[in-house]
Design a protein around this nucleic acid. Structure first.
Length: 402
DNA sequence: CGAGATTCATGTGAAGTATACCTTTAGGCTTAA
DNA sequence: AAGCCTAAAGGTATACTTCACATGAATCTCGTA
């Protein structure tokens, strides 16, 4: 037994890896050059360049679907600008914030607290009045005497949850700052998001707008090839893998991030099963695995109550066109609480929870009116039965059944 | 037969509550002069 | 008397509850052709 394990590890070490540098396929990887995003990067650079001369650039709004390179492009620019400002000792602070991070940047208070911490201030997680945090942030900013570029990624989430007041306040702050200026860059993949903004906020946020169009299959192929050259050993990909991978991604709106992830996971799967090369079948397996992992991850990190609600939804007998209604869910949920000793939430709250699950993409919930028979959410589960059963058992463990 | 009125089951907004955490302040204790 | 620590008072954000009203199409009602 012991011996076998040691052997296994020894073999593992000796085995030649398919990868040379797997990082190149990870989503946080920043390549030296970005293919097919020259015009966009150029535009952004032009708009933001004035910061180097200590002039306030226009606020900027960037939009485009997921995986069109918005975030990478922006990070690219952040990197270059920061480098230059450092070399030339230009007082410039670029701050990238992803607003989708639960419990970190998903409310006005938390975002502000995060920003103040970025400037080296200690902010408690709760307890302080929000305008107090504004003041702290404000004075820290003023003290530093520099240009502050605030990049809000997934800004639509923030606004959806907390309203657009934050943006209004942030743009207004400039008028009161004497030694510093703040520039906003909003990134969103919701194309119609700005319509829901207060007109004043809208006009000031999108003084400039840049659209990131989806990549086409050919462009994705090039990107994949570029990255694969760095990530994989030579000739480890069966011909056609990249093409198939690009086709997968182009199928739903040219999402390059997905394509890269697909390739990486396919590589990992090939390696794990001791194959010499990455084959097409690994792509199919990878697609499965990614979907599954994403769901498991999303579900496992939810609070207990959300999990219980989801479990209730998954456990409704799936006969008639799998249409499920809120009342039904709530009843099962209550029974579940009884069994697990969980304190039941009100229907009001569960209604919101269902909305949250919908936002997370774990379920589809649409408000419909059934006429004489009332109004409710029509819930359906867009997952394969395998994933559903996997989630169920995951939840059973998590919820500690009696 | 068709235009309104009715109805149901929940959606949804506003206001209130519990909890966990923060700052301020007043009182008590210690210490140094 | 000055300094320091502690505990109570007073305040906030967040997650949730309570209350009350809003929704919107299937169904019902009733006047009319």
């Amino acid at each position: 037994m012991e011996k076998g394990l040691t052997n296994y590890f020894e073999n593992f070490l000796e085995k030649e890896s398919l990868f040379t540098n797997k990082k190149a396929l990870q989503s946080n990887y920043l390549p030296e050059t970005l293919a097919h995003r020259d015009t966009q990067i150029q535009q952004i650079a032009q708009i933001l360049a004035p910061v180097l001369k200590q002039e306030k650039p226009s606020n900027l709004f960037i939009y485009g679907k997921t995986g069109t390179g918005k975030t990478v492009s922006m990070k690219h620019i952040i990197r270059d600008l920061s480098k230059i400002s450092e070399e030339k000792a230009i007082p410039l602070h670029m701050c990238y914030v992803n607003c989708k991070l639960k419990k970190i940047t998903d409310t006005e208070y938390r975002l502000l607290a995060h920003l103040a911490r970025e400037l080296g201030k200690e902010i408690p997680s709760t307890g302080l009045p929000t305008d107090e945090v504004y003041k702290i942030f404000f004075s820290a900013l003023e003290q530093k005497k520099h240009m502050f570029v605030l990049i809000l990624d997934e800004i639509d989430w923030l606004i959806k949850k907390t309203g657009d007041e934050i943006l209004y306040n942030l743009t207004r702050i400039n008028a009161e700052l004497e030694h510093s200026q703040i520039t906003l860059v909003g990134i969103s993949n919701d194309l119609v998001f700005t319509d829901s903004l207060d007109p004043r906020v809208k006009s000031s946020l999108s003084e400039e707008e840049i659209l990131f169009p989806p990549y086409n299959a050919l462009q994705i192929q090039e990107i994949l090839n570029q990255r694969a050259a760095i990530a994989f050993q030579k000739k480890k990909l069966v011909p056609g893998v990249v093409e198939k991978c690009a086709a997968f991604a182009a199928r739903d709106h040219g999402d390059a991030r997905r394509a890269l992830e697909l390739l990486r996971v396919a590589g990992e799967l090939a390696e794990r099963s001791d194959m010499k090369k990455v084959e097409i079948k690994h792509l199919d397996q990878a697609e499965d695995k990614i979907e599954r992992d994403r769901m498991v991850e999303a579900v496992a990190t939810q609070p207990k109550q959300v999990q219980a609600t989801l479990y209730a939804i998954l456990n409704i007998p799936q006969e008639k066109n799998n249409l499920i209604f809120t009342g039904e869910v709530y009843n099962i949920y209550k029974g579940l609480c009884l069994k697990t000793g969980l304190r039941p939430l009100t229907q009001r709250r569960v209604s919101d929870v269902i909305g949250e699950l919908d936002m997370l993409g774990i379920i589809n919930a649409k408000v419909i009116s059934k006429g004489r028979y009332g109004r409710t959410r029509e819930i359906s589960i867009p997952l394969s039965t395998e994933i559903t059963t996997e989630l169920k058992s995951l939840l059973e463990d998590g919820l500690a059944f009696v």
